Simulated assay, not measured.
Amino acid sequence: MESTILLVRHASHPLLGRTLCGRMPGVSLDDAGRAQAARLGARIAARAPAAIHTSPLERARETADLLAEACGCPVLPCDGLNEIDFGAWSGQDFPALADDPRWTTWNEARATSRPPGGESMVEAQVRVVAALDGLRRRHPGRVVVAVSHADVIKAAILWAVGASLDAYHRIEIGPAGVSALALRDGGATLLSMNEGLA
């Protein structure tokens, strides 16, 4: 049976665009992010989701909690929605990473490279696709919200459309952006991508 998965990127936080946060702890939403999530909750409530599943990281959990206030449905942790493990790069500012040739390789060849001591995008894609299929099976025929992170959402979308992970840079997933997949046995259809709050 087909289910609709609403892939939601966490809302904004103070380090956005400055630091590769990865899985570092203590990254919480800022006031703008909390306002984004509250506005998004009102929109998502109209879809009557069965549940909100979330990455375990603070910025995703806080987004999920604000969505749940509007939707009146439970928030459930899902490790498969976690951010990519960026290993030694976690917590580094982007200007510092620009001098690392491995960072250049990572951004030019996502299908074949890996962060130092971290997780490849292929591994992240396998993980998130398995998690989404689990949500489909858990909530057959329903709308489900999955709060995650930009690169993880990109990996899921690229899987759904049958594109290489090297095409990740052709997709923009903004803070509190929503993308929708229809999942069924054996595949998925991309219904929408990076819908903002306008």
Rank of each mutant, 00 (worst) to 15 (best):
E195G: 10
S55K: 12
L76I: 07
A96G: 00
G22N: 08
I84D: 00
G72D: 01
A130G: 12
A51K: 13
S3C: 02
A88D: 11
R9W: 08
V75R: 03
W103C: 06
S164V: 06
A60V: 02
R170D: 13
R59I: 04
D185N: 03
T19D: 05
I173S: 03
D133K: 11
P14Q: 05
G80L: 02
V27E: 14
A38V: 15
A42S: 10
A124F: 07
V147T: 00
L29S: 05
G134R: 11
A96I: 00
A68L: 06
S192E: 07
W89M: 04
I5S: 01
V143L: 00
L40K: 03
A130Y: 11
A130H: 15
T63H: 03
D31F: 11
S3D: 00
E172T: 12
A37C: 09
N194L: 02
A46E: 15
Y168A: 13
E123K: 13
V8Q: 05
D185P: 13
Q125C: 13
L29I: 07
T54P: 06
A155V: 01
A109F: 05
L20S: 07
T189K: 12
G174Y: 04
V145G: 03
A150L: 03
A35E: 15
Q125L: 11
I171T: 08
H53E: 05
L20G: 13
R110W: 02
D99T: 10
G87R: 06
D31H: 11
M121T: 13
C71I: 02
A96K: 01
G91W: 07
A146M: 01
L20A: 13
T4F: 12
A111Q: 05
M193E: 11
A180G: 07
S148D: 00
R18A: 14
G87T: 03
E83G: 03
G187D: 06
I171N: 04
A32G: 15
E108R: 13
F86G: 00
H149N: 04
T112F: 02
T63N: 00
L40M: 09
F86W: 10
V143W: 01
D185A: 13
A156V: 02
G174D: 09
I153E: 04
